[in-house]
Design a protein around this nucleic acid. Structure first.
Lengths: 198, 198
DNA sequence: ACGGAATCCGACCGGTCGTGCTAATCTGCG
DNA sequence: CGCAGATTAGCACGACCGGTCGGATTCCGT
């Protein structure tokens, strides 16, 4: 790894950490440069614009999410075990990836809600891709008989994201000590729903 | 209404609108002053600090929410109809209150996630109060036999917020045209859950 | 109508932001 | 070693930020 790409990696590591703490709009050049042991202009030369830096940090965070939360599913039993594994690891993101703070993607949803641009476009794609991953896991669980026939993967994925979102609210913002328990119970209810009507 | 309080009301009206579009950190003094037909220092004299302005705007938004979304429940049938009414009006907030943009409270969750302060403290209280309102509606629905005996109001309120959060994500950020349909279906499933095991 | 208080303005402060530009330094190859 | 190109530092810019202050203006009770 050449010097340049190593520095770039150091910058992005600091950027992802910062994004977890203060969002992607909080990626201010001066403090970030200090964290990455550079000057502001030295850092800037690697990206050329703040938006490019934000996109790169988003990409890096997504890669971390993929390898920390999604990828381990390959080692789990197909169907419901795999779905349950991804969801429960998802609940521990971003801590499980060694990152501080809270989920940067949820922060980005608010930050780039109104203003268009590259970051928003990339973010919606990332969400859609992950949504499809969930849907495939659900469909697989249905095929394995772990979920009732007729379960809509899209609807299920939507409600799963709802649970993760509410968990973020209860755990990270409200600091409710019972947040995890409630989320697990809600997941169990979602999975168990309809079982008795088979 | 004296001149001062009238101006203050004009400022807060502009502030709530702005908060719906750019969040409470987006309440920058200069642009807000222009919207309220004042100079920056003239506006500032009414609050004394940006934090006080944010708190006042939060208070105003909460009052609007109360009278637009919650209060109409008094005219609805006790129990499930009342709960359903509040939830469906909630889905149309803040548009139903004549406000542009999206829910300012969800934006505030991200903005004040990490930094402590008056705004965060006030916001958690507002959330807790509304959560209690929901829990009482749920408890009433249980008493009327509209929801299964043994339904936990706290758990139900948690999952209801989850649905509203996911709706915000799907509708406002992802701009999914089927968001409303999916949210209504999820609500129906949440209400109907367990019915068949009574 | 008058005087004191409430209200508002305009100019200004120190600081931070993203963004360019040039010059110095460093790295890796021949 | 020496040179070319990649890499970083240094510096300055215009814009915007929240906040301050003195004075002008307007309001309102008497």
């Amino acid at each position: 790894m050449s010097k340049g790409t190593e520095t770039r990696a150091r910058i992005l590591a600091a950027a992802v950490e910062t994004a977890c703490l203060t969002g992607f709009n909080g990626l201010n050049l001066q403090p970030l440069a200090v964290r990455a042991r550079l000057t502001k202009s030295g850092l800037y030369a690697h990206f050329g614009s703040k938006e490019a830096l934000q996109v790169a940090a988003l990409e890096r965070a997504a890669a971390l999410f993929q390898q920390t939360i999604v990828a381990p599913a390959k080692a789990e039993g197909a169907g419901l075990p795999r779905l349950r594994g991804v969801f429960h690891r998802w609940l521990e993101w971003p801590g499980r990836a060694g990152l501080p703070g809270h989920c940067p993607f949820f922060a980005a949803v608010v930050e780039f809600d109104h203003d268009e641009g590259l970051v928003r476009a990339r973010l919606t794609r990332l969400f859609r891709d992950f949504q499809q991953v969930i849907e495939q896991l659900v469909a697989s669980a249905v095929r394995h008989g772990h979920l009732p026939e007729g379960t809509s993967p899209t609807q299920f994925a939507h409600e799963l994201l709802a649970l993760r979102y509410a968990h973020h609210w209860a755990q990270d913002f409200m600091r409710d000590p019972q947040a995890m328990m409630r989320t697990r119970e809600a997941f169990a209810a979602l999975v168990g729903r309809g079982r008795n009507v088979i």
